[in-house]
Simulated scan of single mutants.
Amino acid sequence: MKTALIFAGQGAQYVGMGKELYDNFQCAKEVFERADEALKMNLSSLCFEGPSDELNKTENTQPAILTTSVAALRVLESQGINFDVTAGLSLGEYSAHICAGTFSFEDGVKLVKNRGRFMQEAVPQGVGGMSAVLGLDRGLLDEAVKEAAQFGIVEVANYNCPDQIVIAGEVEAVKIAGEKAQEKGAKRVITLTVSGPFHTSMLKGAAEKLKEELNNIEIKQFTTPIITNVTGDYIKSLEEVKPFLVKQVMSSVKWEDSVRTMLNDGIDTFIELGPGRVLSGFSKKIDRNVKVFNIEDLKSLNKTLDSLK
């Protein structure tokens, strides 16, 4: 068995996430306490009790998901489970770096709070949007995006899995690209409720601010291979870490490519850490033969441990 640990991105949050792990495992409780201290706010209470409108603010969502994910990671590590590679979708890539020891949890949680704020502030509310396109071949969607680009900025934000690709950019251009995608045979186009056109060139300002923040962070040699969203391939050296994290904010998330890279290297088991099961679903759509597990509460933890042992 070859195992990958994968980490959830923004959108997976819900009020109550991480509470059972906090209540039952000292190592998980410590992660939440360290987050509260590092951020000088009661992030734990926001995760466990809400309110949801506060939790859903990007600058709160990102540290909340990262903290819940790392708490799940520490619980898994306490059970002696080994793994071979790590990756995360968008925000989840920061959890993967903490998993691999590239930077400290405290640095990571402060970094993603700022990242969330920069992303939120980069484009005025209502100017940009995102849509998920279901059931259209990647090549045909790329064509639709190219045709719609004359009406404004529109780019592919996420290559999630064969059946789901996300486009983003200026509202009107995204709408036209969605219509063209449907003309080319897309099953559905769903407008996403997000605060901005993430993972497009419109986030350049956020990327520049993030670069300044990263200059203050100490990067250490990662102990586990990490795959980056930017290329869908392994990070080869320490020098690539910061440039990839900067570029990641404003370029396509190549999640399907990332999973295929792992599959090609013999990974047959994926454990998703943190809230929700979105990545487990994507993994199954990319290859239905893989084994997928997740850890977000006691039930999912026990199920995963029983299956692995």
Score class of each variant (00 low, 15 high):
143 E>W: 08
15 V>M: 04
194 V>W: 08
68 T>G: 06
105 F>H: 01
291 K>W: 00
187 K>W: 03
77 E>T: 05
78 S>L: 13
275 P>R: 10
235 I>V: 15
35 A>S: 12
133 V>H: 10
80 G>T: 11
114 N>P: 00
14 Y>A: 03
5 L>I: 10
49 E>K: 14
204 K>V: 08
101 G>H: 02
59 E>N: 08
143 E>M: 07
202 M>P: 01
120 Q>D: 13
57 K>W: 08
300 S>Q: 09
21 L>I: 08
1 M>C: 03
229 N>F: 10
57 K>L: 15
271 I>M: 08
275 P>V: 07
305 L>I: 15
270 F>I: 07
141 L>P: 04
216 N>E: 15
296 E>W: 12
79 Q>D: 08
148 A>I: 03
37 E>C: 08
268 D>E: 15
77 E>F: 00
58 T>I: 03
76 L>E: 06
306 D>Y: 00
132 A>F: 12
142 D>A: 14
129 G>E: 14
88 G>Q: 08
108 G>K: 08
66 L>K: 08
279 L>W: 02
131 S>F: 06
183 E>S: 09
230 V>E: 13
244 F>K: 08
155 E>Q: 13
292 V>G: 07
149 A>K: 14
109 V>P: 05
10 Q>H: 02
213 E>Y: 07
130 M>G: 09
176 I>T: 01
261 T>S: 13
98 I>A: 11
290 V>S: 05
16 G>K: 02
211 K>M: 07
93 E>I: 04
11 G>R: 02
197 P>I: 12
184 K>H: 02
23 D>M: 00
270 F>L: 09
282 F>K: 11
67 T>S: 12
255 W>S: 05
98 I>N: 00
262 M>I: 09
138 R>M: 14
120 Q>W: 07
94 Y>M: 09
190 I>F: 05
107 D>P: 04
71 A>V: 09
145 V>Y: 11
294 N>T: 05
183 E>I: 07
282 F>G: 10
12 A>C: 07
140 L>Y: 07
227 I>A: 11
214 L>E: 06
12 A>F: 05
188 R>Q: 11
138 R>K: 15
120 Q>K: 15
217 I>D: 11
244 F>W: 03
288 R>M: 09
308 L>R: 03
257 D>T: 05
19 K>C: 03
189 V>K: 04
292 V>H: 10
213 E>T: 12
225 P>M: 10
256 E>W: 01
251 S>P: 00
81 I>V: 15
302 N>R: 13
271 I>W: 13
298 L>Q: 12
188 R>V: 01
68 T>Q: 02
272 E>D: 06
26 Q>M: 02
65 I>G: 07
199 H>W: 13
274 G>P: 04
81 I>R: 05
93 E>N: 04
260 R>K: 15
53 D>H: 11
148 A>R: 03
209 K>Q: 15
160 N>A: 06
77 E>L: 06
125 Q>H: 12
34 R>K: 14
147 E>S: 09
245 L>R: 03
165 I>G: 01
137 D>N: 12
